[in-house]
Amino acid sequence: MQVKNIRIPPRHEVKPFFQPILSLQSQEIIGYETLGRHVRESGVESLGAFFHNPDIPEEMHLMIDRHLREQAIQRLASTANDGMLFINLKPSWIYRTFKRTGKLPTIELLKKYGVDSSRIVIEITEEEFTGGLQELTWIVEQYREFGCTIAIDDVGSGFSNFDRIASLQPKILKMDLNILKKSLFHDGYKALMQSFSILAGQMGASLLVEGVETKKELQSALQVGARYVQGYLFAKAEPDLLPKDTFKLMLKEEMKLFGRQEFERYNSLLTVPQSLDELVHASYVITSAGDADALIEQAIRNVSEQCIRIYICREDGYQTSSNYTRREEGWGKDESYRGANWTWRPYFISNILMMDMQKQGILSQPYTDLDTSQQIRTYSCALSEGYYLFLDLLM
């Protein structure tokens, strides 16, 4: 059968292929995403064009998708491989099918083949959805209550919006591969990737970065806190399941390299506060903005080029000193920041408390500087009673 030059494949030529998903925690394959392929004597083709063709009736899409899904679940039930199966489901399909029948075909298939539901990850795919979000959430909750894990696919693309993420409360956020690739060359996309990492952590979800094709992209995934990775660097979708330790040696080497680079980077950052050790432990009294500025002017003689900004605040968040900012021609002084309050920054109060409790300085998580748009960390340490020194450091 054909619809506008798109051939609808016969069911016997439609097969599920499996792309491995790896855990950076264990360096093993922990599961597979099932993807549809049209298998003929002339070769193997992706079914992407078929599923994305709006001219093909939805019932034809559903028929082929369910056929693929049943084969994949049957394969899972019959193999000794203990990996998980990631199944893509469009929200519109879930919504309309349940509204019409009151059933969820995937759950029926799991019951039919006796598959442990904890081995199934339901990926809610990227798609514009016009139905009721509350109803969709309630329907997706049926999968969760049955024991399946919920994931959101293509986070960062146009349709996987924050309302959907917040409402569905997934345990896995799957990063849109285009953001990863752009983040290698663009600070804005790098910041966006890091924001999704923070979002995952706040929600109690794990970050899965897909589309990893190079070792450089794998390093980027590690930098943003990915727990899982997937992509051609490891394997394309294949008809067979691989032994779970297939890529273990390669991942161990890459993670060793990543760890060494991170240690070197942190060590270079920590040389900045070490150079201020004598100053920090000296006895002096800050009674005015002038005192604070004089102290900073003494400090900047010893800091490395990684330090781009220095200032002093009180424990109530008010900045006492001027801002001292590194420029091409030397250090610049901006008195307009005197009296600015920084308690609105999420890290400020918690860092003050931690410094008081631990009696040592703190290095913040990476973030993008508001003024320069550069990736920085802030080192902060206690000075005399009630005053704290802050240094913004380039990554």
Rank of each mutant, 00 (worst) to 15 (best):
G156L: 06
A235S: 15
L218V: 03
F146S: 05
S197V: 08
Y228R: 01
F234K: 06
V212I: 15
E213T: 05
C148G: 00
I152L: 15
G147W: 09
E210S: 07
D240A: 11
K181N: 04
T214F: 07
I165W: 03
K215M: 09
F185E: 14
E238K: 02
I172H: 00
F196P: 02
Q219C: 07
K190V: 00
L208R: 09
L222I: 08
Q202S: 10
K236N: 11
L241S: 02
P243R: 05
K215H: 12
G188T: 09
S206C: 10
L242Y: 05
D245L: 01
M193C: 14
F159E: 12
K252Q: 13
K236A: 13
C148S: 07
G147Y: 10
I172S: 09
D163E: 13
S195A: 12
A221I: 02
L251G: 00
G204L: 14
G188D: 08
A151K: 08
S197T: 07
K248L: 01
M250S: 09
S167Y: 08
L192D: 00
V155C: 10
K190I: 00
R164M: 12
F159Y: 10
K236E: 11
E213I: 07
V155F: 08
E210M: 00
R164T: 10
M250V: 01
T246V: 10
A226R: 08
G204T: 11
K248T: 10
M175T: 11
